Computed example of a mutant assay.
Amino acid sequence: MAAISVPGSARPLHPLHAILLAFPLPLFLGALLSDFAYRSSFQIQWANFSSWLLAGGLFIGGFALLWALIDLIRSGTARRKRAAIYFFVLLAMWILGFISALVHSKDAFAIMPEALYLSAIATILALVAAWMGYSGYQSREAA
């Protein structure tokens, strides 16, 4: 039997939206790992790396958020609830990432432990958003 993709309750992402959604998770995860490295070594460059990774995640994540808003506005009533949840998860990710970037803009010795917590929450939200975004098709066995 061959596995085929059939449409579930949601349709798949547009290819450009999928590309934009691919960036926030690794960038926020990199910021989280940089925060862990800073916490263990107190080398200021790790805090700088984290700030740049957050800026990249916010920049690309902002375009993914904009695309999700447009998709929410254009979605029909059958897809509206899922599109709204997806949009609000992306919005929460972006807002917490922005707050984390503000925390990272402080003196390097003053960012812990808030920066670590905010980066962790933003990474989890980016994972949830990616999971929701890429789960448009479900595979099942064809007879």
Rank of each mutant, 00 (worst) to 15 (best):
A2H: 12
I4S: 01
V6R: 01
A10D: 13
H14G: 06
P15L: 09
A18H: 04
I19S: 10
L21V: 15
F23W: 12
P24F: 08
L25Q: 06
L25S: 03
L29C: 04
L32N: 00
Y38N: 07
F42K: 14
Q45V: 14
N48W: 14
F49A: 06
L54D: 03
G57C: 07
F59D: 03
F59V: 07
F59N: 02
I60V: 15
I60N: 03
G62I: 11
L66T: 12
W67M: 13
I70M: 14
I73R: 14
R74N: 12
G76S: 01
I85V: 15
F87C: 08
F88N: 11
A92Y: 06
F98Q: 00
F98K: 00
I99Q: 00
S100V: 02
S100M: 02
A101N: 05
L102K: 09
L102Q: 12
S105V: 02
K106V: 10
D107K: 14
F109H: 12
A110W: 09
P113C: 02
E114I: 08
A115P: 11
L116H: 05
L116S: 09
Y117R: 11
I121N: 03
V128E: 06
A129E: 01
A129F: 02
A129Y: 02
A130P: 04
A130Q: 09
W131C: 07
W131V: 12
Y137A: 10
S139D: 06
A142W: 14
A143F: 10
